[in-house]
């Protein structure tokens, strides 16, 4: 069985096997469900964002430069994961691993900034229980942060597990859906920086 050599790479490695096809579709469906998950959190936040209960509000806390830097980091990590997939499709496995590592590092930097940000806000008297705004804010942004953390752990596991295996029809779909997940994190962040931070400061 193992002597089967594929001389030309199939154009869509992630969908070359039935397992890969199923994983690819199933993951997109999962992302469809995640849409509602985050919509519920956004709705809750928007419903409660004016309920400060005497605590600090968005315009007292948010700093645009920090959010801008975080946004750029996450956006760039989205691009590096695109590079990873292009490398994969070219059959350049080393390139795939390298770009995935860069993506993870950028993700970790983003997460570091987010933790710093939360610590900062707590020092400025916005605790999780201070007000309905505080609870809703930390829940929405925190859930996104938890997704980032999970993504980092997931992709790191993949990189370590497959550091020597070379590109196979089994790991190609795994990397591919992990990248889809990473893009989706960025999609959610676009709405977070617009709806939470920019709208928070702008009015």
């Amino acid at each position: 069985m193992a002597d089967q050599h594929v001389q030309t790479l199939p154009p869509n490695l992630e969908k070359a096997t039935l397992e890969g096809k199923n994983k690819y579709l199933g993951f997109w469906l999962f992302l469809g469900g995640e849409t509602i998950l985050f919509a519920s959190l956004f709705g809750t936040y928007l419903g409660l964002r004016g309920s400060l209960n005497g605590g600090p509000g968005p315009s007292d806390l948010f700093h645009l430069p920090l959010v801008f830097i975080m946004t750029m980091i996450l956006l760039t990590s989205s691009l590096t994961s695109v590079f990873a997939i292009i490398s994969m499709k070219k059959g350049n496995y080393k390139g795939l691993l390298t770009w995935m590592t860069v993506t993870v590092l950028l993700g970790a930097a983003f997460l570091g900034f987010e933790i710093y940000e939360f610590v900062e806000y707590v020092e400025h008297d916005l605790g999780f229980t201070t007000s309905a705004f505080g609870s809703a804010f930390y829940t929405l942004v925190g859930t996104h942060g938890a997704h980032v953390a999970f993504g980092i752990a997931w992709i790191t596991t993949l990189i370590i597990r497959y550091r020597k295996s070379g590109l196979t029809l089994t790991n190609a779909p795994k990397f591919y859906v992990a990248v889809l997940y990473w893009h989706f994190i960025d999609v959610v962040w676009v709405f977070i920086f617009s709806v939470v931070y920019l709208m928070g400061i702008g009015g």
Partner: peptide, 15 residues
Amino acid sequence: GATYFAVHAGGNVVI
């Protein structure tokens, strides 16, 4: 102790 639904802290039960 979050306060999404706690009216005394500005929460809203309808959520």
